[in-house]
Amino acid sequence: MEPVLAIVVGVLFAAAIYLILRRSLVKLVIGLILLSNAANLLIFTVSGFTRAAPPLVPEGLEQPVGAVADPLPQALILTAIVISFGVLAFAVVLIHRAYEVVGHDDLDQMKDTDT
């Protein structure tokens, strides 16, 4: 399972970088969305999979029996999803406003502030 997901993560990163390098604003935001999902999937993959062993403590015991799945990566991913959702919502509003103000969705038309 890990090799498959590793390849998926790689493809997601590559696609995201490709989209970010395009001139279109909309593709830029889609690239950012893919990028944050790629990172989340990376955390999930890199911390390893444990099949059918939920981290639960059986009744009457102090600690779980045998090897159990690590719940922390999922907590990290959940936090990262919430954060990236907020940030990307801002990014979507930003490109909409930028489109309204500039009148283009072409990044090459937005060079006024560059030096």
Binding site: I20, L32, S36, N40, L42, V102, D112
Partner: peptide
């Protein structure tokens, strides 16, 4: 708006790299 698009994109990219490094 023009400045913010560059600022937001590159800073988000850096955050994602940070997150990936933390995950690894």
């Amino acid at each position: 708006m023009e400045g913010a698009i560059k600022y937001v994109t590159l800073n988000l990219l850096s955050s994602v790299l940070l997150l990936a490094a933390v995950g690894l």
